[in-house]
């Protein structure tokens, strides 16, 4: 009697089928990383705009109040780290989540006149403005919520992300143009002392 052969190729084919079936359930049918249950309205300080997360309406940037508002531009924007308005240019963090919920942040600029979004920096987090008004942004970092020190997917992501590999960099941007005025390497960008070192000082002091 001829015994059936179990080859590595057959194992891989079975794994592909098993994986496809698993992902169909856990990612597409019942998305385990889905955050659509959240329903919040977060006004951006000093502006008539707000970041809205809702299970009833599309997530995005809205204009107006919690009761009366209109969608300006859809997307998963951040409000917790920083947002800045300069004339008709609104600088925001835009979050993108992977299938397993690993979040990445990019710095985008929304032109409120044309309602167009432009990506400025990838793997970057806008932290606010410094004392002299320039935008302070950290490039080459992954969101602390991902726990990048222990999350192997973050390490894998870093293989193809030159900014993340090179280490964190604090950038000072001209809010009128979005140009980088000054940059400094800093490995402690997510620590408590960040505000004191950068946000509470002027660009000249930081350069000093």
């Amino acid at each position: 009697m001829r015994s059936p052969k179990l080859s590595v190729n057959a194992l891989l084919l079975m794994l592909l089928i098993f994986g496809g079936f698993t992902f169909f359930i856990t990612v597409f049918l019942i998305p385990v990383a889905d955050r659509s249950g959240i329903n919040t309205f977060n006004p951006i300080e000093g502006t008539p705009y707000a970041i809205h997360y809702s299970s009833l309406e599309p997530n995005g940037l809205y204009e107006g109040t919690e009761n009366v508002h209109s969608l300006v531009i859809p997307g998963d924007f951040g409000f917790d780290w920083g947002a800045a308005l300069e004339g008709e240019r609104l600088y925001l963090n835009e979050y993108t989540a992977s299938d397993l919920g690993v979040m990445h942040s990019d710095l985008v600029c929304v032109d409120l006149t044309t309602r167009e979004k432009t990506a400025l920096l990838s793997d970057a987090i806008l932290r606010g403005r410094c004392a002299s008004g320039e935008l302070v942004c950290v490039r080459g970092v992954l969101l602390p919520a991902n726990e990048p020190e222990t999350n192997v997917l973050c390490r894998f992501y870093g293989l193809a992300a030159p900014g993340v590999r090179d280490g964190a960099e604090v950038l000072f941007l001209d809010p009128a143009t979005g140009e980088i005025l000054y940059s400094v390497r800093d490995d402690e960008t997510m620590g408590d002392g960040f505000d004191g070192r950068y946000l509470e000082r002027t660009l000249t002091e930081v350069r000093g």
Partner: peptide
């Protein structure tokens, strides 16, 4: 190489059902 290439899928498949594993060693 074939078995090594299959390990990430195994990891992702298991973690997709148990997300808290993703942030742990």
């Amino acid at each position: 190489v074939q078995i090594a290439a299959a390990l990430p899928l195994l990891y992702v498949a298991i973690v997709s059902g148990w997300l808290s594993l993703a942030t742990r060693k």
